[in-house]
Every structure is written in C-alpha cells, then in structure tokens.
Design a binder for these strands. Structure first.
Lengths: 112, 112
DNA sequence: CCTTCATAGGTAGCAACGCTACTTGTCGGC
DNA sequence: GCCGACAAGTAGCGTTGCTACCTATGAAGG
C-alpha cells in the first residue's frame, strides 16, 4: 500500500496507537506495522516530525528516558489528544463513508 | 467535512463520477455534491487542474462543444481511465480497511 | 440599460503533508 | 574494528488541494 495516501490521517493513526499506551517513536512505527499486518511501514522521517507536530498541538506529551545508554523519547496521549482522537474517528467515518459511496462500499456502515 | 482530507483520492473520485457517463467540469462538481449528499463541495480551482492532470495521464479525454455560446469541455473516461479506476478501487479498499483497523468502525476493538 | 447571479472554464501562488536521503549515537555480534 | 539493528532527528523536495483571482455568456430584476 502506498503510504502517501495517508495524507491527513496520519495524525489520527498515531493518536490511535498511543491510545493503548505510551510508546517511543521507534515502537510506534513497529506497532503500526504489526497492527496493520505489514501494510503500514512508515519511515522515521514521517513519524518524528508528525509526533512533534502533535506535541506542539498539545495532543501528546513526551518524556526522555535513558535505557542502556539509549535515549528514548516516550510519547503519551494527553486529554486533549484523546478528545482529538474522538473527533478524528468521527471525521474518518464521514470521510470513509463519503468516499466509499463513490468507490464502492467496502464495508457498508452497519446500522447500529 | 474538510475536503483537504481528500488528498490522493480526488482522482479516484473524478474517475468514478465519469464512469457513469461523460460530463463537463461544472457538472462534475455538481454530481459530486449531489451524490455525496452535500459533503463534497469542491471549488473549481480543485477540479479543473485535477481534470487536466487526469487528461495528461490519459485517463480521461476531453472534447469542446459550444452550447448557446457557452464553451463546454466534456470529459469522458478512457479505457486506461477505467483500468485506473479499478486499481483505485482496490487501493481504496485496502486503505480504508487498514486505517479502519486503527480508527475503528466505531469503537476500539473490544477484547472479544 | 445596467447590475447581479448562475453557469462555465481557467490560472497563479500558497500551505500542508509525507517522503527520500542523510546525520548522529549506542550496543551486540563477527 | 566494523557492520547492522536500534533510536532519534533534520533538510529539502514533490504532490496535492486550496484560496483568490480572472474571463465570458445568458437570464432575471431594477
């Protein structure tokens, strides 16, 4: 899968991954790869700037820890980040159902 | 809905609209608005350059016709465009199921 | 007659976003 | 000592869609 199509949804993905618990950058990349079944293999040059963007926005908070001489910056979701994630989920649902209407419904929104 | 999230999927949408029959630019905008239930209201500055991009790529062909002194450029899907659309559909399904895995149809995957 | 609106097509320049390529540094295995 | 995996980061680029404009016709309203 071409990752460039992520445009605009990467932030939501990152927040979603951090929802399950704080992780450091490298671990986030791995979590994305594993949870997507290998479909998402994002380069560090994509992740780190995105995390800083999220931190500037106040959606994640970071803290340094040194493990075996390795500097790790661990990111965790803030309250604002959680709220943002909820909004992103709603936005995603709208977006995917709208585009899906044109590109063929792949998962017709199951009526609750 | 913020339209900027379309990134990377606009071309697919345009091809999908033209799949049902040739239309001129303005009509394409209306078709998108109507079929999306108003969610997609794209400015001309988005559509026209996109159509030219698709034409350069050989996915659509255009022809001029003058109707009541109005110049209309009608776009229609080419064979290559149809094939591209099929690919875009597949890509969309992959993309949406991948992102959906993180953003959930609704809730974070409940521990079954 | 003239203005305004809807139709119709278009361009220029901008900003956002993710990517490639590169750099720095530690640790473990050869 | 060197290479590769881990870990974090920066610089610069290209694509993409957006805002803001411009041109032009026909219909409606004053």
């Amino acid at each position: 899968m071409k990752a460039q199509a992520l445009h605009g949804h990467l932030d939501a993905l990152l927040l979603a991954v951090l929802e399950r618990g704080a992780l450091h950058g490298y671990a986030i990349i791995e979590a994305l790869r594993v949870r997507s079944g290998g479909a998402l293999d994002l380069p560090t040059g994509t992740i780190y700037p995105a995390l800083r963007r999220l931190e500037r926005a106040g959606y994640v908070a970071s803290s340094w820890s040194t493990v075996n001489g390795r500097e790790r910056r661990t990111y965790q979701l803030t309250d604002a980040g959680g709220r943002a994630l909820a909004g992103e989920r709603t936005g995603w649902r709208e977006f995917s159902s709208t585009v899906g209407r044109f590109l063929g419904p792949d998962q017709p929104p199951a009526p609750a």
